[in-house]
Design a protein around this nucleic acid. Structure first.
Length: 417
RNA sequence: GCCGCCGUAGUAUAGCCCGGUCUAGUAUGCGGGCCUGUCGAGCCCGUGACCCGGGUUCAAAUCCCGGCGGCGGCGCCA
């Protein structure tokens, strides 16, 4: 068997040399050279600097003494590349790097089992989502990332020059997804979101990824909530089953998730906070701190994941369906341990009402004519959501900063690498 | 945009408050030596740093001002 990777650790103890090689799995390959058994191999391994790119021919050894990796009996080693200078960061965690350094050298640090484990789990999240949605009749689509208008107005959009016109990077596939539901009853897209918001927090990125779903012919909001809760439960349980090595490496205990998730009405959430002594302003949305407090309270009651439904109209987008009272909407958030990981709702599919809602929000319908036209020819009742990949990963793995969940980070100050 | 904290070898840090004792300490990495399986092995020798600019002072890593960079909080949101 031929295996390849990079020298991660190397230790010479007298006449024995032990080399760990970072390959495709989280746990390294372990190569052992003994001077009195195979002097040639011993010398080759002894002289390999950290970071060397090598391949070796070998089979798993009958003696497995290493606590970190899988040992191989090595027949031959081929060295493809040696570093021209010492590595800029520790890959083994003897001297942990600061987050800033970790982000700068992520492409190199991915040789480290911990760092690699995070992104192998991320891969599983995407794989599980795609599998679940396809199995449930959703079609994967791709919508434009260069757009003429955003879902919410222009404040948070990145401008780009599109020949002689001004265009924007898409902050959400929302409007396109809805248009597609006029022909394809179930669609989803795994997509980047671009947000030009100048925040600097542990849970915001300016380029992030979402699992975006839209579903037509629904009987009500419950259909959308069902899809989302089952999707999230499938993803988490999939990771639990398929990433045992990664979770162990990261020291993460991932409890099995069952559905349904608790549904809290917006007012209920505020009441719970107040009855637990948390001051909540009379407002149309929950502050981040309030959300965190609610997360703690809900966790004590055994709810890691819960919906908050029925957000007031003043704090929501124009496209959410309003209840008869004109104040509550069918917009919801999904919170995971006090952090919003998804939001969505039932949309307004009735043309006249949609037009009226846009005007109420101060938007000019003529800027959205391409979108509005889709509501003229038999738009079914529909709803959907966007699920943040980095946020889901962050909460699943207990990461303290969302930047840990993105390989190459785009935030307020980072544009390279 | 506002507020707070921080910037010392490749990496991670001590020293800064109370200026001189700093020829800037330690770990890791790197170079060399010892050790017959290490588990962040261990031991010995060597190597390399005060973000930039200005100011105060006999004397600045240390105090002051400006710049640049990082971390976090708020708003907003996935």
């Amino acid at each position: 068997m031929r295996l390849c990777g990079w020298v991660l650790r190397s230790k010479v103890i007298g006449k024995v040399v032990i080399v760990e090689v970072s390959g495709s799995s989280v746990k390294p390959y372990v190569l052992v050279g003994k001077e009195d058994v195979d002097p040639g191999l011993y010398n080759t391994l002894k002289d390999l600097p950290l970071g060397s790119a090598i391949c070796f021919e070998g089979e798993p050894s009958e003696t497995q003494k290493s606590k970190r990796g899988v040992e191989y009996n090595v027949k031959s080693v081929k060295v493809y590349s040696k570093p021209s200078e010492p590595l800029p960061v520790e890959l083994v965690g003897k001297v942990p790097s600061l987050l800033d350094t970790r982000i700068k050298y992520r492409w190199l640090l991915l040789r480290n089992p911990l760092e690699k484990a995070i992104f192998k789990v991320r891969q599983s999240v995407i794989e599980a989502a795609r599998r679940y949605l396809i199995e449930n009749g959703f079609i994967e689509v791709h919508t434009p990332k260069i757009v003429a208008a955003g879902a919410e107005g222009g404040a948070t959009l990145f401008k780009v020059q599109y020949f002689e016109r001004e265009a924007y990077l898409s902050q959400s596939p929302q409007l396109y997804k809805q248009m597609l539901v006029s022909s394809l009853p179930r669609v989803f897209e795994i997509t980047p979101y671009f947000r030009a918001e100048k925040f600097n927090t542990t849970r915001h990125l300016n380029e992030s990824w979402g699992i975006d779903v839209e579903q037509g012919f629904i009987d009500g909001l419950e259909d959308v909530l069902n899809t989302l809760e089952n999707l999230v439960a499938f993803i988490v349980n999939y990771v639990r089953e398929n990433n045992k090595e990664e979770l162990e490496t990261l020291g993460v205990e991932l409890p099995r998730i069952s559905t349904p998730f608790k549904r809290l009405r917006f007012e209920e959430a505020i009441d719970i906070l107040r009855s637990n002594g948390v001051e909540v302003q009379e407002s149309e949305d929950l502050s981040d701190q309030a959300e965190r407090e609610l997360g703690k309270i809900m966790a004590e009651k055994g709810h890691d994941l819960y919906f908050i439904v029925g957000f007031p109209w003043p704090s929501t987008g124009f496209y959410y369906m309003r209840e008869e009272d004109g104040y509550h909407t069918r917009k919801f958030d999904l919170d995971y341990r006090g952090l919003e990981i998804a939001s969505g709702g039932q949309r307004e599919h009735r043309y006249e009402r949609l037009l009226e809602a846009m005007k109420l929000k101060g938007l000019d319908p003529s800027n959205f004519s391409f979108y509005l036209e889709a509501f003229k020819y038999g738009m079914p009742p529909h709803g959907g959501f966007g699920l943040g990949v980095e946020r889901l990963l962050m909460q699943m793995l207990g990461l303290s900063n969302i930047r840990e969940a993105a390989i190459f980070v785009r935030d307020r100050t980072r544009l390279i690498p």
